[in-house]
Computed example of a mutant assay.
Amino acid sequence: MKNAYARFVPLLFSALISCTKVSAQVTLITLKRENQREWDLYTKGLIQTDFMLDFQNMKVKDGFIAHSIEIPQHNSVNTNFSIKQSQIGLGIKQKTENGLSVYAEIDFYGPKGTTAPRLRHAYLQWNKWLIGQTWSNFSDLEIVPGIFDFVPPNGMIFTRRIQLRYTTPLSAKEILSISMEDLNIPSITLPADSLGWKKRAIIPTITTLYRYGSEKSYIKIGGILTPISYDTRSTLQDSYKTRTIMGWGALVSGKLYLNNNNIVSVQSSFGKGFETNNSNLNEEKYDAVPDPNNGNRLKTLPMFNLTGVYEHWWSPKWYSTAFISYSSLGNEDFISKDMTKNFQHIGMNIAFHPYKKMRIGIEGSYGRRHNFANLEAQAWRIQWSTSVSF
């Protein structure tokens, strides 16, 4: 404990003189050949530093993920200093409406806890079409709150996907988008035996999202169909047979400006076999699990999510964000007892913009995880952050 507090003071000092976050764009050069359209080569991103103080062990250090809270409860003080949220992007686009554009972006959330560069976005956009890797169409970027944490409220549907997307306005207030996304999206648990069942990627995930409203206040309704395919056999001598089950999900999301200083946002989602689209359960093998009462065939798990966000601007330079989220995953008796049954995530911050492209603040987060063995653990985090955008 004394060692933790001995590290706390210098790290806190470093964090407080270095913490912030915003979004901008810097044009590097404008290109134009005679009688042709102009092109802009630009860069954008942010440099963010975070100091985190945890009061319970969590497997994930750089973002608050309730699913990673270790069970049983083991209170301990841990500190972490990170620059992994920093992002650098480079793009080129035609200076015309619906022109061709290409964009790529990295952060520093590398594998195994390193700060190696990681590809976040890489896509090409033209007219109403987009192809490449970016945020899934089955999500709502507009509702993501102004928090410092690398991970949004844990009940949100929020992931990146390789995709082909078509987006079109239906009227002055309506927009519809449809996408085919990565064949390999489903994240499943296979039986732990010698038969060697295999996951297959055969049919792409299909999503649709409808938006109605103004630039500020709106409502979105979305749907997702996720085919889950795998190869099975009953004995080692048998040939593999491919089975496919269907995962599905529905999403309702919206934002309401009560006035310029008070904003309320809500998102809810429900369905079966789409757990990996949850920001907390991405690639955690919860979409389908084996049912030993039915020959170990995979069965999709139900999931329900609910998130509420309130943002208040105290002045043009000061604001606070508060949120609460809840997620639940069914109650099947064949699910492994160490798997997560439900989790909650609550947070609040206060942020200051001393300059337009700089943000400094402090944030508190609380989470609770409950597994199928009816054991639970709780965790608290305090985070000091600073970022500068360009």
Rank of each mutant, 00 (worst) to 15 (best):
M156L: 15
M156D: 07
I157D: 08
I157G: 00
I157L: 14
I157C: 02
F158P: 03
F158Q: 12
T159C: 07
T159M: 08
R160A: 11
R160I: 10
R160T: 14
R161P: 00
R161F: 00
L164T: 10
L164F: 15
L164A: 13
R165L: 13
Y166A: 11
Y166E: 03
T167E: 13
T167Q: 13
T167H: 05
T168M: 14
T168P: 02
T168L: 14
P169M: 15
P169G: 13
P169T: 15
P169D: 15
L170E: 12
S171M: 13
S171N: 13
S171A: 12
A172R: 15
K173V: 13
K173T: 15
S177Y: 02
S177K: 11
S177N: 11
S177E: 10
S177R: 10
I178M: 12
I178Y: 05
S179Q: 02
S179N: 03
S179D: 02
M180P: 00
M180F: 12
M180T: 13
M180A: 15
M180G: 13
M180E: 04
M180N: 04
E181A: 03
E181I: 01
D182M: 01
D182S: 09
D182L: 00
L183G: 06
L183P: 08
L183T: 10
N184L: 01
I185E: 04
I185S: 11
I185M: 10
P186F: 00
P186N: 04
P186S: 04
I188V: 12
I188R: 03
I188Q: 03
T189Y: 01
T189L: 09
T189H: 02
T189G: 04
T189C: 02
L190K: 08
L190N: 10
A192L: 11
A192R: 08
D193Y: 07
D193P: 03
S194R: 08
S194Q: 11
L195W: 05
G196A: 07
G196W: 06
G196K: 05
G196I: 05
G196E: 11
W197P: 07
K198H: 12
K198G: 04
K198V: 07
K198N: 07
K199V: 01
K199Q: 10
R200M: 08
A201C: 06
I202C: 04
I203Q: 07
I203S: 09
I203W: 06
I203T: 11
P204M: 07
P204D: 06
I206L: 13
I206P: 00
T207W: 00
T207A: 12
T207C: 09
T207I: 05
T207M: 02
T208Q: 10
T208V: 10
T208H: 04
L209A: 03
L209W: 05
Y210T: 05
R211G: 05
R211A: 10
Y212H: 14
G213S: 06
G213A: 05
K216G: 02
K216S: 08
K216W: 04
Y218S: 04
Y218R: 06
I219M: 12
I219C: 01
I219N: 02
K220W: 05
K220Q: 14
K220E: 13
I221V: 14
I221F: 15
G222E: 09
G222I: 11
G222V: 10
G223N: 07
I224V: 14
I224Q: 07
L225V: 09
L225F: 12
L225Y: 09
T226P: 00
T226V: 09
T226Y: 00
S229A: 08
S229W: 06
Y230F: 13
Y230R: 08
Y230S: 05
